[in-house]
């Protein structure tokens, strides 16, 4: 899988404040990459640097294997983006707003505008001035604008900001459909884990300008999912029993005698009985309380994310 975005020691300093601090980020082709952090963590500054809107204090950005600052024009042509709430010319219709992008980029496909309006479900709202659009409609139009030129990389900064729960759901479905149908690499930032955890397959967690962790979501889920932990006298025999008697294969042995069972979460009594009946001493049974949200809270400190 080739690398689409790679930043090296990316740093932005305002006065004495480091908004982004030696950030090393890697996004591979085809990934839906969640960029998670609290408000003010440095997400938008990073995204604006990726799009050439803000110049880094130091550090490098490579996109599609090329240096952004030496090939900015060519690179940006291959990217679609929506940074925070998208801005539009409110005296124009959706079609006219998209026409501005189409003219400048040189989109020659005749029905490209209609096609993208249909993708985002705005094809029946073409006569309405954008000034009369709701925030949700503007967000969808922002996605349409980002998709107009068939980008290979889509960068969306807080696309669900300000949307109501239904709007958030619609936006999530839209992004998911796009990833499936167009097979493009997507970077999506958010300060709310639950909004993007169903979408992304990789995640970077940023806090106070630093990228704390960059992991695949599968890894994260596994690392942070709930489990039953048994401390037993014979872990070999215990695991054999789990597999043969209860058909439990989703477990891990940690340290000596500590078995973590990731399935059958309500059946600790039955598992305990099985161990005891087979002469295995059980000195501790524990249900983990770690969930993904708690994990992020621990990682970035403070109360909640956002």
């Amino acid at each position: 899988m080739s690398v689409v975005i790679k930043t090296t020691n990316l740093t932005k300093i305002y006065g004495e404040q480091k908004s982004v601090d030696h950030l090393n980020m890697t996004v591979k082709q085809g990934q839906i990459y969640g960029f998670l952090g609290r408000n003010g963590a440095g997400k938008t500054t990073t995204i604006r640097m990726l799009l050439g809107l803000i110049k880094p204090t130091h550090g490098e950005i490579e996109i599609f294997g090329e240096n952004l600052f030496t090939n900015q024009k060519e690179i940006l042509r291959r990217i679609g983006s929506m940074v925070e709430v998208p801005g539009f010319y409110e005296n124009l219709t959706a079609r006219e707003n998209l026409m501005i992008n189409a003219k400048i980029i040189g989109v020659h496909k005749k029905n490209a505008i209609d096609e993208t309006l249909e993708i985002v479900g705005l094809h029946n709202e073409t006569k309405k001035l954008v000034g009369k659009y709701s925030l949700g409609m503007k967000q969808r139009l922002g996605i349409a604008r980002a998709l107009l030129h068939y980008p290979e990389l889509l960068i969306l900064d807080e696309p669900t900001n300000g949307l109501d729960p239904i709007g958030i759901k619609e936006m999530r479905r839209l992004i998911k459909d796009l990833a499936n149908e167009r097979n493009i690499t997507i970077v999506i930032s958010s300060h709310i884990l639950s909004e993007i955890e169903q979408l992304v397959d990789h995640m970077g967690i940023i806090h106070q300008g630093k990228l704390l962790e960059e992991v695949s979501f599968d890894q994260l889920r596994k690392r942070n999912r709930k489990y039953l932990e048994f401390q037993v006298s014979d872990d070999n025999k215990a695991t054999m029993l789990l597999e043969n008697q209860l058909e439990i294969n989703d477990y891990e042995v940690h340290d000596e005698g500590h078995i973590r069972v990731y399935s059958h979460l309500g059946q600790q009594g039955q598992i305990n009985r099985l161990f005891v009946q087979n002469d295995i001493d059980v000195s501790k049974i524990m249900m983990s309380e770690d969930r993904l949200e708690d994990y992020f809270t621990k990682l970035v400190g403070g109360g909640t994310i956002g």
Partner: peptide, 18 residues
């Protein structure tokens, strides 16, 4: 100023318009 006021500058510069 309208490109700032209507927040359209970020779109234009990332299309990109030099």
């Amino acid at each position: 100023n309208r490109e700032y006021a209507e927040d359209t500058l970020k779109n234009l510069l990332t299309i990109p318009v030099p």
